[in-house]
Nucleic acid binder design. Structure first.
Lengths: 239, 239
DNA sequence: AAACGTTTGTGCACGTTTTCACAAAGGCGA
DNA sequence: TCGCCTTTGTGAAAACGTGCACAAACGTTT
């Protein structure tokens, strides 16, 4: 079963962009687009065309020179490489505000990550149903994880409980964790961790706002254009 | 009013870490810690000590050799540099599942980003109260933004509506946008954009899970240790 | 006042990521 | 079939971020 695939190691920066390409390609396919050039894809993804080509080249030589990429085939290849050929059920730790929101957020299940279980340490929450799933006690997490072969856990607890949640997830056999708490968690070697801190994102934006203000005051109110733009920002014509 | 501050441009990677240091320093201060070394801070932040020192050096020379950094003073300096000396009210576009969750999530207001307004295009939602704020119509966004001098907007709409939301935010005078939709938005030059796509984070983890499986199958089930760890991951002893 | 141990601040080398530039390769029309 | 136009795939350069290693600086102790 060893094809011509996955002999290369894909850079982390590329792995982070492949899901973006995947979504765009899927949308275009649904609208009837059968072929796309790196330039078109780059435009929609908000990145450089050369970057798109280099990113895609890690999957193999799947484009046709002078023509572009077959959308359907590329969708298949990216899904394959990202391991999205089947669903990955996730278990959510924490049935509070954020946990309930994540469980009820369709964007998870729709994209191949159904909520396979929710656990909480609070007996008052255990037994209630959020997002169509019954909340179980944290003590039962191993049972929940093993029953559905779950390998991805989501931490949606307050910061103070995050490390305990991580320890419980790892003990239950989870090997990837997405941490929504503001706390940095410690896990054994070999466990993958992703982190999303909503407040941090806003603080980064606040910094840029602050700079705008400083720049305007510092010099004599010169043009506000030409400021640096962070992250995945974009400018120019619209879609 | 030009002090010794902000003459340097702070690298984006550093800006993304400063909020993490800030939270840790704040917690330590609350527990009575008055002084910290770069090594201690690095341990808690899960990064290299040299990186901490280099990051902090962009703020100025605020450490004392042989001693470390004064926690309270450093908190003040980071807050100042990030523009967190005052609150930044935000306006949320989209009062659906995600919008309501964000509005109800205390982590926003607690960290200096109170919800100053919520708007939606759906008349059925307008008038209802979520997170203590009354939902107004998207058409009134300019009024909402200007009444409270809001400069940060949060997009919590479905992907299809995200570009319209961004256009409305920019037209209303917002200069920073945090986009939770899966769509890449286009904004005029000079507007800062941050993006959080929950599905993308999970897809990155799926890739690592997939690699674990491929590695185990490809060769004769060799040790699962030594796998690469993405993002802000951590290993070793706990806190 | 001098010697000592500690910790900062930073020059430098290294690795990763981005961007440029162009040869190679495919389709298409004459 | 031949030449032209388009677009890929990728070397090489530039930009960026990370980590090591060490001199300079500080408090403390003698």
């Amino acid at each position: 079963m060893a094809g011509q695939r996955s002999r290369r190691r894909i850079p982390e920066a590329t792995v982070a962009r492949l899901p973006v390409y995947l979504r765009i390609l899927g949308e275009q396919f649904d609208v009837g687009v059968g072929n796309m050039s790196s330039e078109e894809l780059a435009e929609l993804a908000g990145v450089n065309a050369a970057k798109v080509r280099k990113d895609l080249s890690y999957l193999g030589s799947y484009g046709t020179r002078g023509v572009g990429y077959d959308v359907e085939f590329l969708v298949y290849q990216i899904r394959r490489e990202l391991g999205l050929t089947h669903d990955w059920p996730v278990v959510i730790v924490g049935a509070g505000n954020l946990g309930q929101a994540l469980a009820g957020y369709n964007g998870f299940g729709d994209r191949g990550f159904p909520v396979g279980g929710i656990v909480d340490i609070d007996d008052a929450k255990v037994g209630s149903v959020v997002g169509g799933v019954r909340v179980r006690h944290l003590d039962d997490i191993t049972q929940v994880v093993q029953a559905r072969s779950i390998s991805i856990g989501v931490i949606a607890t307050p910061g103070a409980a995050a490390q305990d949640a991580a320890d419980a997830l790892v003990a239950a056999g989870v090997t990837s964790i997405l941490n929504f708490s503001p706390t940095v968690i410690t896990v054994p070697h070999g466990i993958s961790v992703g982190k999303v801190d909503l407040a941090v994102e806003l603080q980064i934006l606040a910094y840029h706002e602050q700079r705008r203000i400083n720049a305007a005051q510092g010099s004599g109110l010169q043009s506000l254009s030409g400021l640096s733009i962070p992250g995945e920002s974009r400018r120019g014509a619209s879609a």
